[in-house]
Nucleic acid binder design. Structure first.
Length: 294
DNA sequence: CAATGGTCTCGTCAAGCCTA
DNA sequence: TAGGCTTGACGAGACCATTG
C-alpha cells in the first residue's frame, strides 16, 4: 500500500468516524426535537455537554417559596388585605376563605388573632404551606379547626386559624407577602390540612365554622359548588404562576441558544480557517518535498 | 385624530410528561 | 396510576407606529 492510498484510507476512516459521530449527534437532535421539549432538561443537557456544569436549575423548595413571595410583591392584583375580624359579620363566600371568632388571646407567647383572609391570600397561602411544610424545619403556625367544631370552640385558642408573632397593630393592612412571611417564620403549632371550611350562621347568630370534608356527605350543593370554585381558583392561580415561570424559562432557553449559536459560529469559522491553513501547508510541502510524496 | 396593523404580555385550556 | 407539573396554542387587551 503506497502513502497515497494509506492517506486515503486514513482520511476515509476519519470521515466514516466523523459520519458516525454526526449520525449520533443528528439522532440525538432528532430525539430531542421529536419529544416534547423541557427547557430545564435541554438546558441541563446543554450545560453538561459543554462542561460548564451550571448549578442545578431545578429550584429547591425554599427558593420556590422565596420566588412565590417575590412574585407576590408585584403580582397580587388586588390588595389582599388582612383585616381583624372584630365582629361576626360574614363576608361574601367568594371573598372569604377563613373566618374565625372575635376573640384575641396570647397563648404560649404567640399572639392569636382571628382573621379574615381574602381568596388571593388563601390561594397563595395554600401553596406556600405545602412548600414550606415539606422542606425547612420552620413550620407555619396554622391551627386547624377540629372537625365538628362549634362556635364555643372558636373562643378557644385551638380554634384560631392563623397565629402570628406580631402585635395586633402589625396585623392590620398586611400585604399578602407580609402575611406569608409571618406565616412562614412562625413556629409550628399545627398544620392545616385543608383550606376549605364550611361557614354558616346558626339561629343564635354566632359564627360556626367546621372543617369541610372533600366529598363528604355533610355538604350542601351550594357548599360543593363553592368548594369546586375554590379548587378551580387555586388551580388557575397555580397555572398562572406556572405559565409565568415557563415563559421566564423559555426566555432563558432562547438566550442560551442564541449564545450557543454565537459560540458555534465562532468555532466553525476557526475550523474553516484552520482547514484552509492546513490545505495551504499541504500543497506547499507537496511542492517543496515531492520525494516525500505527502 | 381615528382607524388599522403589528407586537408583546398575560391568563387559560388541554395534552403530554413526571414522580411518588 | 393518580395527581401535579410543564408547555404549546389560543384569545384578549395594552401599547405603539403608521396611515389617511
Amino acid at each position: 500500500m503506497d502513502n497515497n492510498s494509506s492517506n486515503n484510507l486514513l482520511q476515509s476512516s476519519f470521515e466514516s468516524q466523523e459520519d458516525t459521530d454526526n449520525e449520533k449527534r443528528a439522532a440525538l437532535q432528532r430525539e430531542q426535537l421529536s419529544r416534547r421539549p423541557s427547557y430545564r432538561k435541554i438546558l441541563d443537557e446543554l450545560a453538561s455537554e459543554s462542561g460548564t456544569g451550571t448549578a442545578d436549575t431545578k429550584p429547591d423548595k425554599l427558593n420556590l417559596v422565596a420566588s412565590l413571595n417575590n412574585s407576590q410583591n408585584t403580582q397580587v392584583s388586588q390588595p389582599a388585605v388582612i383585616t381583624i375580624n372584630n365582629s361576626t359579620n360574614l363576608v361574601p363566600p367568594h371573598q372569604q376563605q377563613i373566618l374565625a371568632g372575635p376573640q384575641t388571646s396570647n397563648v404560649g407567647g404567640l399572639f392569636h388573632t382571628p382573621v379574615i383572609v381574602t381568596s388571593d391570600v388563601m390561594s397563595v397561602l395554600a401553596s406556600t404551606l405545602t412548600n414550606s411544610s415539606n422542606t425547612s424545619g420552620v413550620q407555619p403556625t396554622v391551627v386547624a379547626l377540629p372537625q365538628g367544631s362549634n362556635s364555643d370552640q372558636l373562643s378557644q385558642p385551638a380554634a384560631t386559624i392563623m397565629s402570628f408573632n406580631n402585635s395586633q397593630a402589625d396585623l392590620q393592612n398586611l400585604s399578602a407577602t407580609q402575611v406569608l412571611s409571618n406565616v412562614i417564620q412562625a413556629p409550628r403549632t399545627a398544620l392545616i390540612t385543608t383550606p376549605y371550611y364550611n361557614i354558616h350562621r346558626p339561629p343564635n347568630n354566632q359564627v360556626v365554622m367546621t372543617q369541610g370534608i372533600p366529598g363528604g356527605n355533610h355538604q350542601t350543593p351550594q357548599q360543593l359548588a363553592d368548594e369546586a370554585s375554590k379548587k378551580r381558583e387555586i388551580r388557575l392561580m397555580k397555572n398562572r404562576e406556572a405559565a409565568r415561570h415557563c415563559r421566564v424559562k423559555k426566555k432563558e432557553y432562547l438566550k442560551c441558544l442564541e449564545e450557543r449559536v454565537q459560540i458555534l459560529e465562532g468555532q466553525n469559522k476557526k475550523l474553516i480557517d484552520e482547514l484552509k491553513a492546513l490545505k495551504e501547508f499541504y500543497t506547499q510541502h507537496k511542492k517543496d518535498y515531492p520525494e516525500h510524496n505527502i
